[in-house]
Simulated assay, not measured.
Amino acid sequence: MSSSDRAAALMLALGDDHGRIIWNLLDDEEVKELSLAMSSLGTVDAKVIEELFLDFANNVSSVGTMTGNFDNTERLLSKMLPKDKVTQIMEEIRGPAGRTMWDKLGNVNEVVLATYLKNEYPQTVAVVLSKIKPEHAAAVLSVLPDDFAMEVIMRMLRMEPVQKDILDKVEQTLRTEFMNNLARTSRKDSHETIAEIFNFLDRSSETRFLTALEDRNRESAERVRALMFTFDDLQSLDSTGVQTLLRSIDKDRLGLALKGASEKLRDIFFSNMSERAAKILKEDMEAMGPVRLKDVDEAQMEIVNVAKDLADAGEIVLADNKSEDELIY
């Protein structure tokens, strides 16, 4: 266990009564770092706790095992700190990882960060880009509108050393207006988490688990099924999206994936190829003969993952037919 994990286990073991005096002696950064370690600690066996904290063996041995997670951490902090402070701490540790605000920004997707920054003053954006890693700044800059990006570049070229009070103000604005909102919006519904996991199951396992879940909780099963994105959902892509996807995938894998696809989905892919390319792909598929369902599932999963990556990059729009996000032309 790292030193942070050991400290987190100790504070969880001490609880609010014995730990209050220690919490009051920590500064904000220490509270955040300790809270982050507590929230990701997981289950710690009592014997491990006793070995690590012999001075506290009498208190810890009666605890048995304990679980460190976001809920337990928030519950403990709520007993010792003001509500608004607890909310700020929890939203920060739920957001992108990093000790400082600039570390955290380095873990934010460049498209997400650029979407926020394009509404800020060019001078503010110049300060932000000068504080994050050059490779991340380059990625963000390339996503910003060209005219705005050039204005930011000019500000950076003319920028003098930034005064601490201005830097603190920019950091505080980022924390309150961007990072906290990002943490709130990035919390996943448990059904969404299960849907993402189920997307990686082979077809037989997916059916088995969904059927079992339906027997126990029909409403949850329906929500998970609605959130899942499958190979068949690619038929919602427009022609431009299909052509973009075709340029990004291995044609051999596509042929294998289409062996298990509906005629409608096959036609969508074939119609977005040249006549010659479609003919070759059809011949290749026919030459494959019988193929294992497992191999088809793996090929389909690969292509779905490529489609998701393209969607995250803003190159295509995925709109599954089971949601309210379906596009209407």
Score class of each variant (00 low, 15 high):
Ile316Cys: 06
Asp297Arg: 07
Leu258Trp: 08
Lys164Thr: 11
Ile21Glu: 12
Ile132Gly: 09
Arg292Ile: 00
Ile303Thr: 02
Leu201Pro: 01
Leu293Met: 13
Ile280Ser: 06
Leu265Cys: 07
Met159Arg: 05
Asp252Trp: 04
Asn272Phe: 03
Leu327Ala: 12
Leu310Arg: 13
Glu29Gly: 07
Ser204Ile: 04
Thr124His: 12
Ser205Asn: 11
Thr244Phe: 06
Met80Trp: 00
Asn59Ala: 15
Lys79Tyr: 11
Val306Leu: 08
Asp168Gly: 08
Glu50Asp: 09
Leu14Gly: 05
Met273Glu: 13
Phe198Ile: 07
Arg208His: 15
Lys104Arg: 13
Asn181Cys: 00
Glu50Ala: 14
Lys104Ala: 00
Asn72Arg: 11
Glu110Leu: 02
Leu327Thr: 11
Val306Pro: 01
Arg20His: 10
Ser239Ala: 12
Ser323Tyr: 04
Gly15Ala: 10
Ala277Cys: 02
Lys104Asp: 00
Leu77Asp: 05
Tyr329Thr: 02
Asp320Phe: 11
Asn305Ser: 13
Lys294Asp: 14
Val86Arg: 07
Phe70Asp: 03
Pro134Gln: 08
Ile89Cys: 11
Ser248Arg: 05
Thr193His: 14
Glu135Leu: 04
Glu50Asn: 04
Phe231Cys: 11
Glu263Asn: 10
Gly98Lys: 00
Ala307Gly: 11
Val306Phe: 01
Ala126Phe: 09
Phe231Val: 11
Thr43Gly: 08
Leu182Lys: 00
Thr43Phe: 14
Lys308Arg: 15
Arg276Cys: 00
Thr240Arg: 15
Gly64Ser: 11
Glu263Tyr: 01
Leu105Trp: 00
Asn181Trp: 08
Lys79Ala: 10
Asn321Arg: 12
Arg158Met: 15
Arg99Ser: 12
Leu246Tyr: 04
Val304Lys: 01
Leu327Met: 08
Trp23Cys: 03
Asn321Gln: 08
Asp71Trp: 10
Arg253Trp: 12
Gly314Ile: 02
Asp103Thr: 06
Ser130Val: 01
Ser3Met: 09
Leu76Lys: 02
Ala307Lys: 05
Asp84Gly: 04
Asp45Gln: 14
Ser2Pro: 09
Ile303Cys: 03
Glu110Ile: 02
Phe269Gln: 09
Thr230Pro: 02
Val291Ser: 13
Thr173Asp: 14
Asp238Leu: 06
Ser142Gly: 13
Asp202Met: 07
Gly19Ile: 04
Ala183His: 09
Lys169Gly: 07
Val306Ser: 14
Asn72Leu: 07
Arg155Ser: 11
Asp295Asn: 09
Leu81His: 01
Glu151Trp: 05
Ala139His: 06
Leu77Tyr: 09
Pro161Phe: 14
Asp189Gly: 01
Gln243Arg: 15
Asn24Gln: 14
Ser239Trp: 09
Ser190Glu: 15
Asp320Gly: 13
Leu41Glu: 03
Asp238Cys: 01
Ser35Val: 01
Asn119Glu: 12
Ala137Arg: 00
Phe178Met: 04
Asp202Ile: 02
